[in-house]
Design a protein around this nucleic acid. Structure first.
Lengths: 253, 253
DNA sequence: ACAAAAGTGTTGAGAGTACACCCATGC
DNA sequence: GCATGGGTGTACTCTCAACACTTTTGT
């Protein structure tokens, strides 16, 4: 019995250049869903929106939508994100593709999920973020990842996966800095890590580690807040991160 | 300006149960591509197939094909793999989804890529593996990852990503054991790791580390090969791996 | 002076790395 | 007896984790 490809990597018909794909080829509805993280009020929060149509009318779910004919999948995710936040520069990374037959009661929808992280201050500066409307009544709501409501479809699973990924990546990449403004204090940085990881960290060990990594540039500015000792502001410098990644250095706390 | 979802996570029309998705919704061709790794002749190899249709007629590419209407994306990947190898149990993991508009000259094809790893001995035992045919003439060919030919589409990139993932995961999961038979010697295990990572490892450190992890069960059998001292055979025990993963323990060599 | 957060070093334990020789077997 | 891979232990270094007090400011 000779080896054959019963479903070869090719289309059934001809091969004219950007021609349409021919008949017996199945086509699928493809959606993107985005978990947008931010830090606010000392908690790691994700953006949820209220469904305006059935199924799951009125239920909370992740922002997302269908991929359009003339946009890449990444572009679709970015578009959905910008529709929600009006932010142009945002850290966005693909998570996983969910392709089960039964994940949408209307029929098969393949979902490419993403996660994104953004500094809360940027959301406030962007025009009309969903959260500044009126909380529950508005279609968008920021929700602490530790206390999520019921979510439509398999969106709970997507959030879990995103959280797991974020918690891993914060240890050996610079995603964590995306959640902070350009200039920040070491205490703010530590709080961000604590909130993401869900654990307390030792102050001295954290500062020692961060400073020795050489990815922070100390400014000579300070943050004065109330009746306390002013804290030095640092900024993040990407330069050395690349070298660390090349060497495969992992940065646990 | 109120917050609106201009492309909501919903279909344009009604919401009858497993009904078809309605009209203005774009549908897309979705393919799966699989990087199948094995170890043979002291090298890490990937399975390539020769394209039988244009575009890229005659070029090498990854095994893969389109997702059918009534199968999940994972099932499509598994099906493609089984068509090539006739193996039923195989480690398969999703890699990444490529959704650029221009990755296929015929039009937009979204590709969900996977990687898989399998013990070479299983391939030989399975009926009619592509490699036992007659090498170049057969549509399937095992190719060392260090010396890949030109590949069609963006399949070179997919292989690179798969290799990167495998090299990472081998350090903190048990994927590596999927490349070996049930019983193996420590030298065989070390060779597998060396071939995957592309680096030499110290024998004493490797053995010490492996044994102290507690994921190997020493059998009392030995492998006699030629005129040498027989080597003790070990088998892999999953039990402790789960505990290690729970604690987030990473296992570098 | 005091409240509140900023800032700062040392020590012990465990893991990683480097390194060289004897052992058991078949021929 | 010899060629071949199998099998073993130690010393050094480095990183992680635990741990408490002084400093600076506003009130």
């Amino acid at each position: 019995m000779p080896h054959t490809l019963s479903s070869p990597t090719d289309l059934a018909g001809a091969a004219d250049a950007p021609a349409l794909l021919s008949a017996p080829l199945a086509r699928h509805a493809v959606a993107v869903d985005v978990v947008l993280f931010t830090i606010h009020e000392g908690a790691l929060k994700a953006l949820l929106v209220k469904r305006q149509q059935p199924p799951f009318l009125g239920a909370w779910c992740l922002p997302g939508g269908f991929v359009r004919p003339e946009e890449s999948v990444d572009a679709a995710a970015l578009r959905e994100l910008q529709e929600e936040t009006h932010i142009t520069r945002i850290y966005l990374e693909q998570l996983y593709t969910f392709g089960n037959l039964d994940r949408d009661p209307r029929g098969r929808v393949i979902s490419v999920s993403y996660y994104a992280v953004v500094d809360w201050a940027q959301l406030r500066d962007a025009i009309r973020p969903p959260s500044t409307q009126d909380g529950q009544a508005a279609p968008g709501r920021w929700c602490a990842v530790t206390r999520l409501p019921e979510l439509a479809f398999d969106h709970r699973q997507i959030v879990s996966l995103a959280l797991e990924r974020l918690r891993n990546k914060v240890n050996y990449t610079s995603v964590g800095f995306q959640l902070l403004p350009k200039k920040f204090t070491l205490s703010e940085l530590q709080q961000a890590y604590e909130v993401i990881l869900g654990t307390a960290l030792d102050k001295r060990n954290f500062r020692k580690k961060m400073l020795q990594l050489g990815i922070l540039r100390s400014t000579h500015e300070h943050r004065l807040e109330g009746r306390r000792r002013p804290a030095r502001l640092y900024s993040f410098t990407q330069a050395r991160v690349i070298k660390l990644q090349e060497k495969g250095i992992i940065v646990p706390f």
